[in-house]
Write a protein that binds this DNA or RNA. Structure first.
Lengths: 179, 179
DNA sequence: AAGATAAGTGAGCGATCGTTTACTTACGAA
DNA sequence: TTCGTAAGTAAACGATCGCTCACTTATCTT
């Protein structure tokens, strides 16, 4: 590790103590600290993505049904695994993240791409550049989750992540994305 | 600093060397490393927020005009100051961020609140819970900026932040937020 | 010119970082 | 039973961390 990875708080000695093993034990299973972090992130991300596809059928769901299922899966996963959120958010701003994305998103991209194209073909969804689509379809959800996990993210006021606010936000997103 | 702050890469010795001064000099102007970071983040955030209000008039602009101006100001600021983005993104996931938000967002919140209420009163904007409004009004923009600053944030594909994709995203957001 | 004060420095403190070394234990194969 | 190997450990290595100390230099007052 030549460059800092932006992931302090995940020191090898500290993790070993928390896991109740010797630091040296960690180096039996991982090449070095970077390998430990990348492998863990891959595992966490892979689990999240697999969970996000639960009860999701890209070929036999309307766009609204499919997107709602994705939102439900992702939100419940992150609400149930707040430590994963914390870890992955730090990870997302580390240069190590590329190594995770490269390994993990392939199958997922294929499914989501099919879902997108089916919806466009059925006339339920605008045809959009990928970055525009993602900024609308998922960024609002992640903002809600972030609000919730931080409790106060903008000024002293508290925001709560509820079923209603999620559904309301989803409805607005659908309104934006429908032709 | 008892708990890790998630801001490695900002070591005092390293910053001192980069600034061409002795580490001891830093402690003339800042109480400790945390003070240095918080004060810097306050200055950076304050600058960003002031720039985001350039040519912005919460009382004499339509919702569309006002939101577009905000988007333009924020995006151009972040595109011109990528190091600020990097620093603030790390900061946003540090527990130190609360100290920044408390000091900085007050005047800004007042202006944005007025802008919001004016637009609702004129019937240009849906009345929404704060977290829903913010998730729609700004999260998509920040997602675009993030895509740009990371070059690849989701899989191997590259996304480009262009005037067109920003304007297109803004149009969808407006479509969602208008009654 | 002399003294007071502010501003800055090099060297290094103790603590913690990632990592390795030398060694011990557990266990199936011969 | 003995041997080979895999799994684990305590201890500590050099490097770097945040931070301080003893000291020098620059600036201002009288």
């Amino acid at each position: 590790m030549i460059v800092k990875d932006g992931l302090d708080g995940f020191g090898v000695n500290k993790l070993a103590k928390a896991a109740g093993v010797s630091p040296a034990t960690i180096y039996i299973y991982y090449k070095d600290r970077e390998d430990l972090i990348v492998q863990t992130a891959i595992r966490v991300t892979d689990t999240m993505l697999k969970e996000s596809l639960a009860d999701f059928d890209p070929d036999n769901m309307s766009f609204e049904e499919g997107l709602r299922q994705q939102w439900k899966n992702r939100s419940s996963h992150f609400l149930n695994n707040p430590l994963d959120v914390q870890f992955m958010e730090k990870m997302r701003y580390s240069h190590l993240y590329d190594k995770v994305a490269d390994k993990v998103y392939n199958t997922f991209k294929e499914v989501m791409g099919r879902f997108y194209h089916n919806a466009v073909k059925r006339g339920e969804l605008l045809q959009l550049p990928t970055e525009v689509y993602w900024s609308l379809a998922f960024a609002p959800l992640y903002q809600l989750i972030k609000f919730h996990s931080q409790a106060k993210s903008f000024g002293p006021q508290k925001y709560h992540f509820t079923e209603e606010s999620m559904e309301q936000t989803l409805q607005l997103v659908l309104k934006a994305l429908k032709p």
